[in-house]
């Protein structure tokens, strides 16, 4: 008896192995917290696709429960305010997405001298592109000077030395696949002042 007592190890709290945590691809939280975000429905879809076992685990019971709650909710409009708030948040996110889809990238060639020109890109920041890094990558890609400049409206834009507008068009599409092709506008030449 006593021997056994001694030999039984103290339940050591094992810290040794890093836990693998799955994060939701939609809202970046651990899936169990998705319900507190604004994009629950999307999160659910994502989870069902990627980790169906986890999905079953999390939502099979709660689904029933939430259905029950929904039923009771219909009788109780008091909790509506919360639902409304959530819907509002979801709509906000939706609107932002739309705004993103609507925003344009304009590539302009500006004549600087008789034979020389610079290329001007604005609107990249709307697609969550880091301008500084983009400028750097343009510089190395086209072997020319490229920098982030504030224009007179106070927005940041990238100025690339030399006429690279056509190449740039392709390059942008290649490097940032989430930029839709229709959103890039090529302005061929801006007439400089005489």
């Amino acid at each position: 008896m006593s021997e056994q007592d001694i030999s039984t190890p103290i339940p050591a709290v094992s810290v040794s192995i890093a836990k693998q945590v799955i994060y939701c691809g939609v809202c970046s939280l651990p899936p169990e917290y998705c319900e507190y975000g604004a994009t629950l429905n999307k999160c659910k879809e994502w989870l069902r696709e990627k980790h169906s076992d986890l999905f079953d685990n999390l939502y099979s019971q709660t689904n029933l429960e939430s259905d029950m709650i929904n039923l009771s909710l219909e009788k109780k409009p008091a909790n509506d305010a919360e639902d409304k708030k959530k819907a509002k948040e979801a709509a906000k996110i939706e609107r932002e997405m739309q705004k993103k889809m609507a925003s344009k990238i304009t590539i302009t060639r500006i004549a600087r001298n008789k034979r020389k020109s610079v290329t001007n890109v604005c609107g990249l920041q709307n697609f969550d592109i880091d301008l500084k890094k983009a400028a750097k990558s343009f510089a190395s890609k086209f072997a020319c000077g490229s920098s982030v400049v504030k224009n007179n409206q106070g927005n940041d834009e990238i100025v690339i030395q030399g006429d690279v507008s056509d190449d740039l068009y392709d390059y942008i599409l290649e490097t940032w696949p989430d930029v839709p092709e229709d959103n890039i506008e090529l302005v061929e030449e801006k007439k400089s002042k005489k």
Binding site: V13, S14, V15, A18, K19, V21, P30
Partner: peptide
């Protein structure tokens, strides 16, 4: 938090 998620017992 990301670190905490990995080593919650630490």
């Amino acid at each position: 938090l990301r670190l905490l998620h990995k080593y919650p017992d630490a």
